[in-house]
């Protein structure tokens, strides 16, 4: 299932899930906003753009202004970059860590597996959001500390998933055949096992980006965001006190989070249907 034919197959299966198509469209839109937004809306989102407390649906400020007269649309456009950046980088870090630990545990088994899994369980027991708060608070809020904190609380499920895949694939006969042929561990891990474990990792990763964005927004809502970066969570957090008089300041950034996370989840489900055809709901 590789090459052009495999890609076409994959797209055929992905396309069957309508939600996944919508999700992909929204995600592309958000990605485009993150990439091009600052070019289309040049300027500093922190600058006062007009009078404070301007209501939305105004030609100059379609989504209104906030308590300090900052343009909310501009904030959302610039915030897209932060959310996606943190979401993707933290996920990449968490997945990398999870894949390394999980594959070592699953491939070597025995005592190594035991130790690594106790370690993983330990991190899975710690209440993750509280831990993330503690980490960001103690190491002072910055893009780096937020990414690190999210990655540290997110990797255990990936490690368990990858370990499970390795444990089953390791006993598969084609892997045993490779051992009997005299192949090295490196070949077996990277050529025989890992390519067969990639699908569930991709699906888990795409769903994890969504979770990472939710965690980031909660952190910045609590005032633990990077103080130099405009983010959606921060916008809602700072507008919270004026909710009764200025609903739009909290409403629109929240909608941005909702749509982005929803799109990522839909894409994740679509990937799952397309990559693990046996598990699709259609067969039921």
């Amino acid at each position: 299932m590789t090459g052009m034919e495999g890609l076409r197959d994959f797209w055929q299966r992905y396309r069957r899930n309508k939600g996944a198509i919508v999700g992909l469209a929204v995600l592309v839109l958000v990605l485009a906003t993150a990439l091009l937004g600052p070019t289309l809306f040049p300027g500093n989102p922190w600058d006062m753009a007009g009078a404070p407390f301007q209501k939305p649906f105004d030609p100059e400020f379609p989504l209104g202004t906030d308590t300090l007269g900052r343009d909310i649309l501009m904030g959302i456009v610039h915030g897209a970059r932060v959310s996606l950046l943190i979401g993707f980088v933290a996920t990449f870090a968490a997945v990398s860590l999870g894949v390394i630990l999980g594959s070592v545990a699953g491939y070597y088994g025995g005592l190594v597996d035991d130790l690594l899994m106790r370690f993983t369980e330990f991190f899975q027991t710690i209440p993750s959001f509280v831990f993330a708060i503690v980490l960001v608070a103690i190491f002072t809020p910055s893009i780096a500390s937020i990414v690190a904190a999210i990655a540290i609380v997110s990797w255990p499920p990936v490690a368990r998933l990858v370990r499970g895949e390795f444990l089953t694939l390791r006993t598969r006969e084609f892997v045993q055949a490779s051992v009997v042929l005299g192949r090295s561990s490196r070949h077996i891990i990277f050529v025989e096992i890992l390519p067969n474990a990639v699908s569930p990792i991709i699906v888990a990763g795409s769903l994890m980006v969504a979770t990472a964005i939710l965690i980031e927004s909660s952190l910045s809502f609590l005032g633990l965001g990077d103080p130099n970066m405009m983010s959606w969570g921060f916008m809602i957090g700072s507008a919270r006190t004026v909710l009764r008089t200025a609903w739009w300041m909290s409403f629109f950034p929240g909608l941005a989070i909702l749509l982005t996370v929803l799109a990522l989840n839909l894409v994740g489900e679509g990937l799952n249907d397309a990559l693990n055809p046996r598990l699709t709901r259609e067969g039921r």
Binding site: I236, L243, G254, L262, L264, N265, L266
Partner: peptide, 22 residues
Amino acid sequence: ALFFYATPIFWVGLMGILLFSV
């Protein structure tokens, strides 16, 4: 389920206040 799975919890709270309290 899909919607609430994707909604930040604090925003649900704020919108709840807006609707049911305000």
